[in-house]
C-alpha cells in the first residue's frame, strides 16, 4: 500500500489505544488504508510531506485525521494549529480523539477549527462503538474536500458502498 492512498491518519502515542482503534476498524473492514504516527513530529512530516515522508504529495491528503491531544515531540493542539493555518492542509478533516475531558481543550480545539471532537470512553465496548461511528460518519457520510475541482457525479456508488447501499 503506497502512502498516497492513506485514508486515515491515526496520531496517538498510546499503544493500547492504537491497538483498540485498529481492532475496531478491522472488525468493520475499515482498516485497509490507515497510517499510524506515534508522535506529533511524524504526523507533521506525513501531512506536510517532509522529513521521512518527503515523497508524499499534497494532492493526496488523508480523508480523516484522528488526533490525540497529548503527544510527544509536537503536541496535538500545536499540530492542529499548524494544519488549520496552512493553505495546503487546512481543509483536511481533523477529528480530535482524546481522553481529555477539559472544557478548555474542547473550546480551543473548536476555535482552532477542528472539525469535530471525541472524548475517548473508558469502556472498551463503547470505545469500539465510538471509533466505528466516527469513521463511518467521516468516511462514508461526509464528503471530504477534493484537491481538484469538478463534479463528483459517478462516485456516488463508491461513496455509498461503505454503508452497504448499492447503485
Amino acid at each position: 500500500m503506497s502512502t498516497a492512498q492513506v485514508e486515515i491518519l491515526l496520531v496517538d502515542d498510546s499503544k493500547e489505544d492504537v491497538d483498540l482503534t485498529l481492532r475496531a476498524l478491522r472488525a468493520e473492514n475499515l482498516a485497509n488504508n490507515i497510517f499510524v504516527a506515534r508522535d506529533g513530529e511524524e504526523a507533521m512530516d506525513f501531512l506536510f510531506c517532509s522529513g521521512s515522508h518527503a515523497g508524499r504529495s499534497f494532492e493526496h491528503p488523508p480523508k480523516l485525521v484522528l488526533l490525540d491531544l497529548k503527544l510527544p515531540k509536537i503536541d496535538g493542539l500545536q499540530l492542529l494549529k499548524r494544519i488549520k493555518n496552512d493553505e495546503r492542509t487546512k481543509n483536511i478533516c481533523v477529528v480530535m480523539m482524546t481522553s481529555s475531558r477539559e472544557e478548555r481543550d474542547l473550546a480551543i480545539g473548536y476555535s482552532l477549527g477542528v472539525n469535530s471532537y471525541l472524548q475517548k470512553p473508558v469502556d472498551f465496548t463503547e470505545f469500539r462503538q465510538m471509533v466505528k461511528s466516527a469513521v463511518l460518519y467521516w468516511l462514508a457520510i461526509n464528503r471530504p474536500p477534493l484537491n481538484s475541482g469538478g463534479e463528483l457525479l459517478g462516485t456516488d456508488a463508491a461513496h455509498h458502498t461503505l454503508t452497504g447501499h448499492t447503485k
Partner: peptide, 20 residues
Amino acid sequence: SRLGRDIARCYESGANCYVS
C-alpha cells in the same frame, strides 16, 4: 450539490463537514 468546487469552498469557509 456534488460539485467539488462547492464542497471545497464550504470547507474553506469553515464548515465542519459536508453531507450530500
